[in-house]
């Protein structure tokens, strides 16, 4: 399983989770875990997703999230989970 972390940060508004989750569903990317909070007025969400269902490579998936970034005006970063596992798990 190729797991990635998607972090979404920016000004809070209605429908952020719905919009991001819908796009991921369209790309056939399964959400494994979500944490979300408001930090100092800023919406902060972290999603752990499984990229294996998507029929495209990492760069293409990243590109496919661009319309959501533009529409929501949120910072959306995606990175492989391996870096967190490497650093924090033996």
């Amino acid at each position: 399983m190729t797991k990635a972390l998607i972090s979404v940060t920016g000004l809070d508004s209605t429908g952020i989770i719905a919009r991001v989750a819908t796009r991921l569903a369209e790309l056939n990317i399964n959400i494994l875990d979500i944490t979300q909070t408001i930090l100092g007025g800023y919406f902060t969400m972290m999603m752990v997703v499984d990229l294996d269902g998507a029929q495209m490579d990492f760069d293409a998936i990243n590109q496919a999230l661009q319309p959501v970034r533009d529409e929501l005006r949120m910072a959306i970063h995606m990175q492989r989970m391996d870096i967190f596992d490497a650093m924090h798990r033996i």
């Binding site: 972390l5 972090s7 875990d33 989970m81 967190f84």
Partner: peptide, 12 residues
């Protein structure tokens, strides 16, 4: 599963 605090530490 990796905890939020650990993810934030790496990002920081």
């Amino acid at each position: 599963m990796i905890e939020t605090g650990e993810i934030l530490q790496t990002m920081r």
